[in-house]
Design a protein around this nucleic acid. Structure first.
Lengths: 134, 134
DNA sequence: CCTTGACTTGAACCGCACTTCAAGTCAAGG
DNA sequence: CCTTGACTTGAAGTGCGGTTCAAGTCAAGG
């Protein structure tokens, strides 16, 4: 257990997040400082891992409240787990969609259609998702 | 060529987007009405396809200005194509990340760690991306 | 002791993507 | 002709995810 605490400035530097963002996350309950160094927030090293998870989930389209919920998740909370299962389906669908979009963008690099978006191969990206309305 | 125009209300219904959003997209130059039915905007059926592309790209993390740019893209615009190639790399990275996150969420459904986020298998999602800073 | 510089706070502000509002207009139906 | 209801406009408002600001505080170094 490495319990050397890290000042907010260094956490900011190492996580790539602004210090203001870290304070914002603290207000939202996503992270917490273990102590203070004078006035300065000091964080446990594990906080860096947690920040990676937060960034990852945020990039995946989770809102900060959803992330807070995810961080609190315990195996006994079946209702929450059901929502996570829903999230999984959502993410899976996004993976499919993004994969198609990536392929379209890849094709755009060599395509000669004018304009590019009229290319039938490009349009493959936007195939309607079967039935995920409401 | 089916050139029957469609009223904004029906486009909204069929695309799943609010009419206010369609007007907003028009102001941003993403779509345009082909004519009017009285005051009512009337769109060509192809607009529905375009709206699917817009929704897809928006979900993929493109801003509306980036989408406008994408819609205007022509094969001769090499600078823009270079940016699209950059976007492709970005999307590819997101696909990887989302795939890991999806697997973690899938695992969360059966995992007994308390709290769930402490599960080593779950943490696999947040593996640091090699070197894509700056 | 005094400066420096990185932090502290709450509150205000920002950009994005829309939505909502108030007041007005039009086409169709009775 | 009058109502109804879906549209029109520009302007203001909303929610999210932060950033920026002003005024203050602390620890370390000279």
């Amino acid at each position: 257990m490495d319990d050397t605490l890290i000042d907010i400035g260094e956490v900011a530097r190492r996580s790539g997040l602004a210090a203001s963002a870290l304070r914002f996350y603290e207000r939202k309950g996503l992270i917490q400082a273990e102590g203070r160094n004078g006035l300065r927030r000091a964080y446990r090293p594990q906080t860096l891992e947690r920040l990676d998870l937060i960034s990852c989930a945020r990039d995946a389209g989770f809102t900060l409240s959803e992330i807070a919920e995810l961080l609190r998740a315990r195996p006994s909370d079946t209702e929450l787990r059901a929502r996570l299962a829903g999230k999984e389906r959502e993410v899976a669908e996004r993976v499919d969609q993004l994969t198609r979009l990536r392929d379209s963008l890849r094709h755009a690099a060599v395509c000669e259609h004018d304009p590019l978006v009229e290319c039938p191969e490009f349009k493959h990206a936007v195939r309607r998702v079967p039935v995920t309305r409401s």
